[in-house]
Computed example of a mutant assay.
Amino acid sequence: MDAHELAQQHCTPQKGAHKRLTGDTLATHLRSVPGWIEADNHISKDFQFADYAQVVAFVNQVAALAAAEDHHPDIMFGFNRVRVVFTTHSVRGVSINDLICAARIEAMRDL
């Protein structure tokens, strides 16, 4: 599934270890969202911006996406940088929802 296909989907409830993406399946999906990396049962990406106003605007866009999808990342930010971290607690790792949100963030940045 490519980034465009992922970005067209919406999050759905994911429960249980059988919904966790690992190994080759996760690696294949991660290739669809360049710059996102997997570590310790989550995916994350660091973003750089010219100034704080751009940081805040981006964080607000990610927060709106998270609210709409009911799938909430950890977001850390400073003067010109943002780190977004997704994990699905109910599967104790990465699920398709994390990748959908990553793809939607990438699509949002392409606008």
Rank of each mutant, 00 (worst) to 15 (best):
L6G: 00
F49L: 14
Q48W: 09
H18K: 09
F49M: 13
M108F: 01
A50R: 07
Q8T: 04
A39D: 10
H71E: 12
S32Q: 11
N41D: 12
A63K: 02
N60I: 07
R81E: 15
Q8F: 10
D51G: 15
E5F: 07
A27I: 15
R109M: 09
V56P: 14
V91H: 03
T28L: 13
G78L: 03
Q8G: 05
A103R: 02
D46A: 01
T28I: 15
V94M: 00
Q61H: 11
L26H: 05
P73R: 00
R83G: 14
E38A: 08
A66R: 01
T22H: 01
A64T: 14
A50E: 14
A50D: 15
G35S: 06
A7L: 04
Y52C: 15
F49N: 14
V84I: 13
A53M: 13
S95N: 06
H4L: 08
R81C: 14
P73M: 00
A53L: 12
E5P: 01
D98Y: 07
M76H: 09
R83V: 14
P13M: 07
F58T: 13
A39N: 08
L111V: 04
I96E: 14
A103E: 10
R20H: 04
V56E: 15
T87Y: 04
Q9E: 11
Q8D: 07
H29P: 03
F79L: 10
N80H: 10
A67D: 13
K45Y: 07
N60S: 06
I96M: 11
A102H: 05
V33Q: 07
T12L: 13
A39M: 05
H18I: 11
D24M: 10
T87F: 03
P73Y: 00
D40P: 04
T28N: 13
V59K: 01
A57Q: 12
S44K: 01
V82E: 15
A103I: 02
H42S: 11
Q14N: 12
K45I: 08
F47I: 01
N97L: 02
Q14D: 13
D46T: 02
M1D: 01
D2G: 03
F49H: 12
F86W: 07
D46E: 05
D98L: 08
L21P: 05
T88R: 00
V82S: 09
H42M: 05
H10L: 11
Q61S: 14
L99N: 02
D2L: 03
Q54E: 14
E5H: 03
A39W: 02
V94C: 00
P34T: 10
H42I: 08
T25E: 15
A107Y: 00
Q9A: 05
F77H: 09
A39C: 09
I105R: 01
I75M: 02
H42D: 12
L99T: 01
A17E: 13
H89T: 05
C101H: 05
T88P: 00
I75H: 02
N80P: 15
R20K: 09
Q48K: 10
K15D: 03
E106R: 07
H29T: 06
A66M: 03
V85C: 08
P73S: 01
A66K: 00
H42V: 10
